[in-house]
């Protein structure tokens, strides 16, 4: 299960854990439960991430790429999909719980249940489809109603950079919007594995 640590060398792991710790408020369903391993006491942190965005922007593909490091054309998600990924770091273990939601509005109510207590949200749009960025802005409004600004880390993710030839949303446009709203920003490609690990690491280290 352990993920190859070499791929995350650029991150300062101790600072990651320091910042992750105070972010786990008490009273949530998911508590940080210190676990033990062979080397001694290594705390385990649960980190809950929700993926939001329109239909077929690549939410499931991002989750699949991150968890399985693979890509496949998939059918639209029905309801929500749940993935877990354990990240073994020197000073502890981070257990990602990733809730991948269907983009269709009929599933909003059921997916909503699992937003609760999320530590981070990825707002995904498709760089080849301008409308999906507008939808992402609407999702942001929903999130802002639900969470206090310091309760959740939100990242704006422009997916499908492998289709840059058909780009409708300039990198600067996404960047600019993210900056005004104080969101993290990254462009990714689940297909060609571009920045997928980085975005998950960025939200956990923020």
């Amino acid at each position: 299960m352990g993920r190859d640590l070499g791929r995350h060398e650029s991150f300062n792991e101790s600072s990651l854990l320091q910042s992750a710790k105070p972010q786990l408020p008490m009273g949530m369903a998911q508590k940080a439960t210190p676990g033990t391993s062979l080397e001694g006491i290594r705390p385990t942190y649960l980190y809950k991430v929700v993926l939001l965005g329109s239909t077929s922007v690549g939410k499931s593909s991002l989750a699949y790429r991150y968890v399985k490091n693979d890509f496949k054309e998939s059918l639209p998600t029905v309801g929500c999909s749940f993935f877990t990924q354990t990240l073994n770091l020197e000073a502890g273990t981070v257990k990602f719980e990733i809730w991948d939601t269907a983009g269709q509005e009929k599933y909003h109510s059921v997916c909503h249940l699992y937003y609760r207590g999320a530590h981070a949200a990825l707002l995904v749009y498709d760089i080849t489809n301008k409308e999906t960025l507008n939808r992402a802005k609407l999702w942001l409004r929903d999130l802002e109603k639900e969470f206090l600004p310091d309760e959740i880390v939100i990242a704006l993710v422009g997916n499908k950079t492998d289709l840059a030839a058909d780009r409708e949303v300039a990198t600067e446009e996404g960047e600019e919007f993210a900056r005004t709203k104080g969101l993290l920003f990254m462009e990714t490609s689940a297909k060609s594995n571009h920045h997928v690990n980085d975005i998950f690491m960025a939200i956990v280290s923020n």
């Binding site: 029905v78 309801g79 999909s81 993935f83 269907a102 599933y107 059921v110």
Partner: peptide, 16 residues
């Protein structure tokens, strides 16, 4: 038909 071939897409939870 709806869910039987959704394997590999994580654990699915959906109203049906």
């Amino acid at each position: 038909n709806l869910l039987g071939s959704g394997a590999g897409a994580g654990e699915v939870w959906t109203p049906v």
